[in-house]
Amino acid sequence: MGEFVQLVVDGLSTGSVYAAIALAIVLVHSATGLVNFAQGGMAVLAAYVAWVLTNQSVPLVVAVLASIVFSFVLGAVVERYLMRRFERGDPDTAVVVTIGLLTLITGIAGWLWSYNNQQFPSLFPLDTVSFLGVSISIRSIGTTLSIVAVMIVLQLLFVRTKLGLALRAVAINPQSAAFSGLPVERLLMVGWGLAAVLGAVAGALVAPQLTLTPGMLDNALVYALAAVILGGLTSPVGVVIAAWMIGVLENLAAVYVPFIGHDLKIAVPFILLFVVLVVRPQGLFGRKTVVRV
């Protein structure tokens, strides 16, 4: 029982990291119709910025906050100076550009900081707490709660604020939104910036566990994409639930299904993904696109 609970909590924690990147992908996709493959790479860059700062003996929390600000600017700049040239053209071209960007960022990070694993300090103590006789790591709980808090803030931003309303309007119909005076181009920059912030949060939370390398989030990106498809591109809540499901399932399967083990656990979400795509192509929580004439 203790092992089971610990596996579920750890699964939720890694799932939360996938969720943050998946949400970033959904955010950019809903604003621009693009899947940004560089989302993980940009997050790694943010983690390196935080790491460099902590090495200059900047307190960890300050370093992470600085990396979040850096990410917002990075996201906005990438939209303004790179993606804008491709947003109105063929979406396939734009997606390939994001893949190129991922390769470029990984290369730059490797060149600047080498491909060796770097220790990244944890935001949470590494102790465990005892709950109903089960010991659970504080880091897992902290990671999960951080992502839940980020989700709530994001939800409030979108539903309760004028900026959120404007971002949603631009995502639905940029041209029509402009007719009401919405500065579409600036709002797209904000959207990319916010997505990059989500990535930075994910990076800072997962770096202590995985140790920092340029390819640290490559696997997480794949899982996040699985969560995006599974949850449905149109449903932020669905995407988070799917990411948690993936995190928990891969953990449980590795331990309880003997022939899967730790080597094959990466296949678990994809088997799930395959089944869902066959049965429900719009994802578990997504909506079918209905065109009204």
Binding site: K162, L165, A166, R168, A169, I172, N173, S180
Partner: peptide, 12 residues
């Protein structure tokens, strides 16, 4: 704006 409510459309 289809996914926004009538009131939200007005606020836009």
């Amino acid at each position: 704006l289809g996914d926004l409510t009538v009131r939200e459309n007005l606020m836009v």
